[in-house]
Amino acid sequence: MRKVDIVSGAVFVIFGAVTLIQSLQLSFFAEGVPGPGFFPGLLAGALMVTGALLVVTRVAKPEGAFEDFAWPTAWQARRSLGLWIAALGSVLLIGIVGFLLAMFVLVGVLLFVIEGRRSLSAVATVIITPLLAYGLFGVLLQVRLPLGLFGD
């Protein structure tokens, strides 16, 4: 955890610095009272200070003082990040093929590719889940779900 903390602390310092530079474009004070840039500037500064503190306190202490960081194994990373990429891809697909088709693809990829299921219940899930969501939101709550390029 020590190394991870040092890295994440540093990331926050950098993020804070970038934000601080950005917020310099906004006026810090306007007519004698705090302007739009006041709080962002202050907070960006605070993020840099706290991030730096995290780095310093971790550097000052031996590795043994912290619990070990649990890196995901290759198998775990394939599953968690694979799931995320599938979600990302499906959101991209929504704009092209519409909500319903994209969600069929998403659930299909999650169950067949990432989980490696081949059972009947998996097939049923792929069919039912998007339809259920569509029924609840598209029909019952009358949300106009995106139809994609071929929709309408």
């Binding site: 499906s90 969600m103 969501a133 609840l136």
Partner: peptide, 17 residues
């Protein structure tokens, strides 16, 4: 494994709505 795709789908459509 059946619940989790449902959570993602509902989250997507919920946020969109």
């Amino acid at each position: 494994y059946i619940l989790s795709p449902g959570i993602i789908v509902i989250s997507i459509v919920g946020v969109f709505s």
